[in-house]
Amino acid sequence: MIENKTREKEDEGMASNSRRDFLKKSSVITAIALTPVAAVKASDLKLDERLSEAIEQMSLSIEINGQQYNLKVEPRLTLLDLLRERLKLTGTKKGCDQGQCGACTVHVDGVRTNSCLSLAVMNDGAKVTTIEGLANGHELHPMQEAFIKHDGFQCGYCTPGQIMSAVACIHEGHANSETEIREFMSGNICRCGAYANIVNAIREVKAGGKV
């Protein structure tokens, strides 16, 4: 009990009264409402934490690259971290984690999206395509072929985002001139500086009409 009280006191001392703090307190209170012995035990096992953990999971139904996933996730999980850390789909890159570089670009229901700015749970019922889902089996997507041919990358880290953006750029009708491509591809940073080659790749694919 003594330990419990100390912890409660610390909680009260916090300026912010977050949802997590509330959950912690309420679960501790629930534990106290049981028997004192059980409460001590609950505290030792950090049962309150486990309780809040369980409550904080939300269900998510999402289709990624044609595969259906039914998941339980924390609401603060981003779509990007769901892909990279939970589902091991690491083709989608984390470059800034704040929507400024485009490395994490994926298609959500056909629209290019910075997956780092989208919480996973916001995509319930959505169809997501990542770089891993772009090729048709062993046969590369024309944009992937064009990136290789025109050397549209060096280190390759921004490349999946560039390619996903490039495909969408054509679909959106924003690839009608070199200037237009530059403007509509400016959300994808390439620090190696392959920009001119990327433009050439997109122009060729657009001209080929395969996208």
Binding site: L89, K93, K94, I131, E132, L140, F147, I148, D151, I163
Partner: peptide, 19 residues
């Protein structure tokens, strides 16, 4: 000649450190 690691880089198959 194109990059020998082009394919793994355009398909997302190349595993960088955190991956």
């Amino acid at each position: 000649m194109s990059r020998v690691d082009g394919r793994v880089k355009v398909t997302g198959a190349a595993k960088y450190t955190a991956e």
